[in-house]
Amino acid sequence: MFTRGTLIYIVQRLVLITLAVLGVSSLVFLGIHRLPGDALFSEHLRGTQYELTLHHYGLDRPLWQQYLTFLGNMFHGDLGESLVNRGVPITPIVLREMSVSAEVGLVALIFTIGLGMSFGVIAALRQNTWLDYLLSTTSVIGYSMPNFVIATFLILVFGVWLENITHGNFYFEIGWPGRYGSIGAIWLPAFALGFPSASIVARMTRASMLEVLQQDFIRTARAKGLAPATITIRHALRNALIPVITVLGPLAMAIITGGVVVENIFGIPGLGKEFATSILNRDYNVVIGVFTGYAALVGLTNLGVDLLYVVIDPRIRY
C-alpha cells in the first residue's frame, strides 16, 4: 500500500507544511506588529516599567530585527512568551491545545464518517422509501444547522432539561473534567462538530452508493453467489467511498474551524478556546501561536486525508 514513493511524497508534503506554517505565522506577525506594544501600554504600566517590559519582549527594536528573531525562534520551535503571563512559554501550551483539539476533531470525524456512511448506505439500499426521504430531509436539516446551534441544543437537552426532568439525578457538568469521564467532555462536542459534516457525507454516500450498485462488478459479485451483506460492504461501499473522500478534506476543515466556537461553548481547553481567550486578553503573542498551531493542524489534516485515498483506492499512488 505505502511504497517508497509514498514516503518521499510524505516528506515533501511535510516540508511544504512547514513552509506554510512559517508563512501563516509571518503574515500574522507582520500584520499585527504594532498591536503587542499597544496592548502592553494599556496594562497600567508607566514610564520606565513600560520601557523595561517592551525591552523584555524585544518590542523596542526595529521591526526587521524583531521579525528575524521571530523567524529564528520559529526554527527552534519557539513561539515566544505570553504578554499577559510573563515568562510563560507559548509553544508547550499551543502543542497541548493542538493535541486536545485534534483529539476532539478526530472523534468528530469518526462521527462524521460513521453516521454519514451508515445513513447514506441505508438510504441508498431503501431508495425511495419513507426511510430514504426521512434520512434525506434530516441531512438537509443537519447541514443547515451551524455546529454552535447543535452544541447549544445539546447543552440545553443534556445540561438543562434532562437535569430538570430527573430532578438533578442526571447532572451534567459543562467543562473538561479530564478525559472521557463525562459525555460532555468529548462526545457531545464531537457530535456537534461532526453532525453537519455527517449530513453531507450521508448525501454523498447515498448518491455514490446508488451509482456503484449499478456497476457491472456488482453484477459479477452477485453472479458469484456472494451474500448481499458482503456485496454491500465489501464491493459497493468501498467503491462508493472514493468520491466521498474528496469532500473529507473540506469537511475536516469545517470541523477544525468549528472547534473555535464549540470548544468555547463546552469549555474544552483546545486551540479554539485559546483563540477566543487570547483575543479577549489581547495576548497577541499567543494569537500568533494559535494561528501557527492552526496552520500546522490544517496541513497535517490535509496530508492525512490525501493518504487516506491511497488506503481506499489502489489506483492512486503517489
Binding site: 500584520g31 499585527i32 469545517a254 477544525i256 494561528f291 490535509n302
Partner: peptide, 14 residues
C-alpha cells in the same frame, strides 16, 4: 485546503 473561515477570521481580526 486552507479553511476559508480561518482566513476570514484573520482578516476581520486585522
Amino acid at each position: 485546503g486552507v479553511p476559508n473561515l480561518l482566513v476570514a477570521l484573520i482578516l476581520v481580526f486585522l
